[in-house]
Each structure stands twice: as C-alpha cells, then as structure tokens.
Amino acid sequence: MSAMRAGVERRKLLDKLFVVLGLLVLFAALAVLLTLFLDLVRQGAPRLNLDFVTSYASRKPEQAGILAAWVGTSLIMVVTACVAMPVGVAAAIYLEEYAPRNWITAVIEINVTNLAGVPSIIYGLLALGLFVYKFSLGQSILAAGLTLALLILPIVIVATREAVRAVPRPIREAAYALGATRWEVTAHHVLPYSMGGVLTGMIIGLSRAIGETAPIITIGALSFIAFLPESLLDPFTAMPIQMFNWVSRPDPGFRVNAAAAGAILLGMTLLMNGIAIWLRYRFRKRMNW
C-alpha cells in the first residue's frame, strides 16, 4: 500500500513541478517583452525629446531625428488602411454571406490561408517587380502602401469573417422576412453589428504593417531623406527603415538613436495592440443577443 501511496505522491509532485515550470516559462516570455521595452527606453532616453521628432536624419547622431521617418510611416499607413480595409472587408463579406459552395470559393479560401504564411520579404519582391517596375509607380509611398495592404489583407479578412460569423442567424432571417435583399441585410444589420471585430482586425493589421521593414527595403526605401514628401509618388523613408539604418552603423551614437526610434516604434505597436484588445473585450462584453 505504501508503495502505491509513494507513487501517488510522486505523481502529484510532478504535477506541481509542471505548474512551476509552466509559470516560469510564461513569465520568462513576458519578462523578455518588459526588458526589451524598458531597455529601449533607457538606452534611447537621451534622444527621446521633441528635437528628435522634429529633425531630419543627419550625419551627426546627436542632431539626427525621425521627422521624415514618421511622416513617411503615417502616409504609408493611410494608403494601406484605405486599400486594405475596403478590399479586406468586402472579401470577408463575400466569403461569409454570399459565396456559394463551389470551386471558386474553395480557391479563394486556400489563397487567403496561403497568403497569411508567405514571408513578408516575398511581398517585397512582388512589389519590386510589379508596382515599382511593371506599374511604374517607382520607389514611392504609394508602392509601399499598396505592398503593406496586400500583406495585411489576410489578417483583415480573417478578423472580419470571425466578426461577421458571430452575428446570430435569426437577425438575418428577421431582416429577410421583412423583404430585405441580401445586401440590405448585410449593410443594415450584419456589418454594423460586426464593426467592433472589423475595427479590431484592422488595428491589428496596421500594427503589423507599421513595423514591417523587409518589404519596404526591397522596394527601395531610402534611409537618408532631408525633405518631406509632397505627393504619394515621392521617395520616402519610414520608422523601421530609419531604425535599421541606425542599428547597422558601428558608431555608438547612432545606437542611441536606434534605441530611441525603437522605443517609439515598439510603443506605437504595443499601444495599437492594446487598443485592439480593449476594443475586443468591450464589444464582447456589450454583445448580448
């Protein structure tokens, strides 16, 4: 009997040990995130001031700033949002509300899944060949915005589909019963009710796009720009490009700049993700059909 008791005790101990291990790994992961952010802020602290945000890039690290970078990033994000939002939402609505069960639908679904797994630098090569040369958009803000829009399209589509699917069937049926057409059901009922989920997906998508570096390097973003773009066809730089340029220089002064730019970039990404999580939480709480 005591042998069995010992076996039970041992198994219970193993159970407890696993809980400790699980918590340890979990908190190690969270500690990385915290360390990373705090260290960026600490290292970048000397440059985290208003001058940094209002100066152009410079050969002297202590005079360099991110003006052209954040203006470039903002314009790119506007283009990305304007393209990804309508196309992504429309595609999701088609797949959820309209699509018949046929091979076209199957092909679209497979492609959306597949595109989510294509490395971002491949999108950069696509954009270089297609937007920059074939469409002659040049190494411009417009080309970068379109590229990132394609990149986040699967994210927006998946998030919108989930939100649309969460709208209960009876709401649609009630609308149909009153004689609404399919589009009226979608536009007057399904879409407004799923707006929270759509918005969340859009913010998550943009937070991914804002930090993407590889595809816009491939297009040919410049790292030294001392003017602000006047049109969407102008050459550009962006926050992650600026940071990459600074981090790859040996001069320690530029490392400080890289840390400061990184702190701002990471801060923006975390803020956008935080907003998305909060929105999701709020909408989930408010929904009681």
Partner: peptide, 21 residues
C-alpha cells in the same frame, strides 16, 4: 493578450535586441 503582443513586436526591434542585448 500579452503573449500576442510578444508576437507583434516589429522584427527590426527584435534585431536590435539580438545584436545589442
């Protein structure tokens, strides 16, 4: 959600983390 944020860190920031820390 916090884990999700760990996956959302821009990769260039992770690059800095690898090189400098």
């Amino acid at each position: 959600p916090v884990l999700e944020m760990l996956g959302a860190v821009p990769t260039v920031v992770y690059g800095y983390f690898a090189l400098v820390m």
